[in-house]
């Protein structure tokens, strides 16, 4: 069994998924995890929470798949698909392999909030069960790169 550390992609405040204003994430329908309410001080570069291949890359969301097949979804804000990529600058392409902590997307959480949407960033262990996750970081401040939780694989 391996232990996969899943890092915070953005600086901000860790919150429970249940507090995310979207039922799909709040009910952990695609998997358990945590969310980060990002700082609102201007553009933020979201980094890769794990090492792996970018199997899905949207401007506002991306999925990394690790070598052993774990999928981690990072979703930059809620309902941000409606922004159609406006305000999101990609540093990588779908299919690229990245290291944990590499820059993926630069965006502005404050601008998302101004548009009337929540900029909260759910970080999801896709198709995991809650008991697979250990050491969930308690609510409170976190920097990009801090460990959010450890996924037992």
């Amino acid at each position: 069994m391996t232990q996969l550390d899943v890092l915070s992609p953005v600086p901000g405040r860790v919150i429970e998924l249940a507090e995310v204003p979207d039922p799909v994430f709040a009910q952990a329908l695609v998997g358990p995890g945590l969310a980060v309410d990002p700082v609102r001080t201007g553009p933020v570069t979201a980094v890769a929470p794990v090492a792996g291949r970018l199997v899905k890359l949207h401007p506002h969301a991306f999925v990394l798949q690790t070598d052993d097949g774990a999928g981690v979804l990072t979703h930059l804000g809620i309902d941000t698909v409606q922004l159609a990529g406006e305000g999101f600058e990609l540093h990588v392409a779908e299919g690229d392999v990245v290291a944990a902590g590499d820059a993926v997307v630069t965006w502005d959480p404050a601008a998302v909030a101004t548009s009337g949407r929540s900029p909260v960033v759910p970080v999801i262990a896709l198709e995991a069960t809650p008991s697979d996750l250990d050491g969930l970081r308690p609510a409170g401040p976190a920097e990009a790169g801090d460990v959010l939780f450890t996924w037992a694989r």
């Binding site: 799909v24 009910q27 329908l29 695609v30 199997v55 999925v63 999928g71 979804l73 896709l126 198709e127």
Partner: peptide, 17 residues
């Protein structure tokens, strides 16, 4: 589908990535 969230005529089918 992992879940279905309906609100009036809008149906969100949760299928993952």
């Amino acid at each position: 589908a992992f879940g279905v969230i309906s609100s009036g005529q809008v149906v969100q089918v949760v299928v993952g990535p």
